[in-house]
Write a protein that binds this DNA or RNA. Structure first.
Lengths: 353, 353
DNA sequence: GTGAAAGCGCTAACAG
DNA sequence: CTGTTAGCGCTTTCAC
């Protein structure tokens, strides 16, 4: 086999223009074709397992490919095919176990279908998220936006450019963009009922990121509940979504005189738990605490955290299903709103007399 | 502007061959060129901010691009340029906070340099990891392998195909592949010294994944320490790397009669802590426990976990530095071995009399 | 069954 | 400064 031969398929190999200087020994489909003494089309057919190639030729091609250590360029293939077999995920915060689980679920599901996952973190920044979303989408065949912080108008303006798109914990009313979410309203109602049942009347809510719609959901329901229950007193404290912010809020929590704290999520709950601990406050003796999400560590804290469990992994997996359907031109199915499950563990107890 | 005009740059727009049927209205560089009445080269120049374009022309191009909602195809661009501005990361287990932190560090650093991150999980499977590594590398400009489970011979055979490659917690002696790692030997020695200082003589090691070289490192040092210290008794228990496995090991730990358990990592330590708790064993009263990694939750357990802290985020960031250097043809700098810092918290105490 | 050629959408060397 | 052209590496239609 003449491995030294130039590309016999190019018409006039005169001056080198355009493109970029590549490694001239790199194995390309042309070199393999030359080496095997066939056309590039045939190599392509063999590499893609077409059966319409004479066994003898196919063998020769395979041998040449082997000898040259040839591997088709996925990039060129993507360009010709018009698809990348890659999907993207954008999350506000990679440090949040909630998003880590979504990432994992999506990665696993996509991987099972031969797709790769591209990830980007917006750092809770709506501007950055828009840029990232557009770019990520263009590098892949589909996009999943988890708990997007992009304001409704912008998101609405953007969604067509981002399609195929699947939204997690977010929706764009009036559009066909598939959305998978958690019913935070129901979760909060369950938590409140649980707390009221224990005799608590003064609650404090440790609020999450303002741009988070799931925070808004919680807030809305909390206020509605407060308005609807006589003697139910609600205080709102801006907090955040991390341990640190929860921890830092401990003193403020105490100052409200509340007997129960409803934390934005489990991490905040942990932080508060830890902070109160350090302040010598007994949980749930003096103060009860609830979280949200049921992240892996929630059951291992001391005491184990009462929280509302949500199907994090499932969210990622289902997101893939929806996205896949969209990418194959199928119907993505109905939107789903997962119902949180209240897990009563040991950070909640009767209100102190 | 004639938005309807076909591509005037193609010689004989006769029959449609090759490629794939695309949306004929899709904005491409050619359509923009036509609309603006310039050549594609000029459009390319404008889009890439070349200053050598007449302001008037540039304006026309920008207007046309705007009108057509044009965005250059990153795919085509990558093919022409020979680079993707994307790097890949492969980890054994996305559920492990250690790898989540590495992912985050890498993502942030790469993002700051305008690069995207592709992620894949090998599920602790060496075979799968090899496939993933090769494919991921071909889709991007560089690869980071975190705690690779690929056996040395295969990894050695593979590393050239994977370059630019950076290894985390792993190395290939005799090659120039940059490696960033943690000195598990030193970490374990510190832990053992701490435990011996407290009077412990019977230790049990909850071993991690067998394919993990960092597990081997720990084991080697542990055995050496045991061999070197009179009266030091070491038991090894196969465990794993998760909560669940640590939790499940509690009973076995008790059966060994050890007064201190050295867990593979923090998650295992948590599991064991929790399991022992349920068995009514007091920590550190009856049994001391140490972890490794100092994952975010380690300081929030009850009691807070004594562990060896490692710069997880830093690993991701430094990995980027090395990779970036490699990709730009620069020297990646010297390998580094980070020294763990022993964090004595409250799961360790004097051995019971 | 197989090859020639057109095409995916962009970049860059070259010539004016 | 701008257009022409060759090229990145692969796929697929069409014709033999």
């Amino acid at each position: 086999m003449s491995l030294d031969a130039g590309d016999t398929h190019r018409s006039k190999p005169r001056a080198r223009r355009g493109g970029v200087r590549r490694d001239p020994t790199a194995a390309t489909i042309s070199r393999v074709a030359d080496a095997a003494g066939v056309s590039r089309a045939t190599v392509s057919r063999v590499m893609n397992g077409s059966t319409t190639v004479a066994p003898e030729l196919a063998a020769r091609v395979r041998a040449a490919a082997e000898a040259l250590n040839y591997e088709p360029s996925l990039l060129a293939r993507s360009l010709a095919l018009g698809r990348t077999s890659t999907v993207s995920l954008i999350v506000p915060d990679l440090a949040n176990p909630m998003f880590q689980d979504i990432l994992r679920g999506l990665s696993t599901a996509a991987g099972a279908h031969g797709h790769r996952l591209m990830v980007a973190e917006s750092n809770e920044n709506a501007e950055a998220e828009q840029i990232l979303a557009v770019e990520a989408r263009r590098r892949s065949d589909g996009l999943v936006l988890a708990s997007s912080r992009i304001p409704e108008p912008q998101l609405r303006a953007l969604h067509e450019r981002l399609a195929p798109l699947v939204l997690l914990n977010r929706e764009i009313p009036g559009t066909a963009v598939p959305s998978l979410s958690v019913d935070y309203h129901a979760g909060i109602r369950a938590i409140v009922a649980h707390l009221l049942g224990y005799g608590h009347r003064r609650l404090v809510y440790l609020a999450g990121p303002p741009a988070s719609t799931s925070n808004t959901d919680r807030l809305v329901t909390l206020r509605a509940e407060a308005a609807g229950s006589p003697g139910f007193d609600l205080t709102e404290l801006d907090c955040g979504s991390t341990f640190e912010t929860g921890h830092a809020a401990a003193r403020a929590v105490l100052a409200t005189g509340a007997t129960a704290v409803v934390a934005f999520n489990d991490m905040v709950a942990f932080g508060a738990l830890s902070g109160l601990h350090e302040l010598g406050v007994s949980v749930p003796g003096q103060v009860s605490i609830t979280g949200f999400d049921d992240i892996p560590f929630a059951r291992y804290t001391t005491p184990p955290l009462t929280t509302a469990s949500i199907p994090k992994n499932e969210l990622g997996g289902q997101a893939w299903e929806r996205l896949w359907a969209l990418m194959s031109g199928a119907s993505p199915g109905y939107d789903a709103r997962f119902q949180p499950r209240l897990l009563v563990r040991d950070t909640t107890g009767p209100a102190p007399a």
